[in-house]
Simulated assay, not measured.
Amino acid sequence: MMKKLMLLSTFLLVLVACKKDPVDSGEQKPVIELLTNNSSKTWQVQDGVAKQGDLEVNLIASQNPCVTDNQITLYSNFSYEFKEGATKCNPNDPDTILTANWELSADESSITIDRFVFLGRSVDNPTFTLSDVTENTFSGTTTVTLNNETFEITVIFESVN
């Protein structure tokens, strides 16, 4: 009897040890799908930092919500709209600040936006090197020159539900 129990225990142990783990397909959604949800997806700046050498400035912390709550909607046809958020700095401002185009690099490592308006500044054709893209956030870094000063800007966007 003891021998049968040992044999059964060994068999169950081997069976459990050989059980396959669930297969993780490892399939990551294409970046275009994460950014546009195959149609359109709206994003809002969650955080932004400008660096120049050892100097680092948080671009969001001291800004008025009428600026930081603005939203960008990326469309799968590579157009986008930059819109006022829930609050406006001037009630007479139009709801849509800017409509333009964007492109995704062939290797999906960067996006270039025709024009980006943030904190009262307009930057033409910035290329954001993507560092992380998920269903809920994406981040990227770009280099911007203003008044002959060059800054590295890192921005984190959060999906708006």
Rank of each mutant, 00 (worst) to 15 (best):
M1K: 14
L8W: 09
L12D: 12
L13I: 14
V16Q: 03
K19C: 11
S25R: 07
Q28K: 15
Q28S: 10
Q28N: 12
K29N: 12
P30L: 07
V31E: 00
I32V: 06
E33F: 00
L34V: 03
N37V: 01
S40T: 01
K41E: 01
Q46E: 15
G48M: 05
V49T: 10
G53W: 06
D54K: 05
D54R: 03
E56I: 09
V57L: 13
L59N: 07
I60P: 06
I60Q: 04
S62R: 03
Q63K: 12
V67R: 05
V67Y: 07
D69A: 08
N70E: 09
I72D: 01
L74Q: 00
Y75M: 01
Y75S: 01
S76E: 01
F78D: 02
S79P: 00
Y80M: 04
F82S: 12
F82A: 03
G85V: 05
C89F: 06
N92G: 08
D93L: 11
D93F: 15
T96E: 07
T96Q: 08
I97D: 05
A100N: 06
E103R: 12
L104V: 02
E108K: 03
S110A: 09
I111M: 03
T112R: 10
I113N: 01
I113S: 00
F118H: 02
L119Q: 08
R121Q: 13
D124L: 10
N125I: 11
T127V: 08
T127I: 07
F128N: 00
T129W: 10
T129L: 07
D132P: 09
E135D: 13
N136R: 13
N136C: 06
G140C: 05
T141G: 08
T141V: 13
T141P: 03
T143K: 10
T145E: 04
L146Y: 03
E149H: 14
E149P: 00
I153V: 13
V155G: 06
I156V: 15
V160Q: 05
V160P: 00
N161H: 09
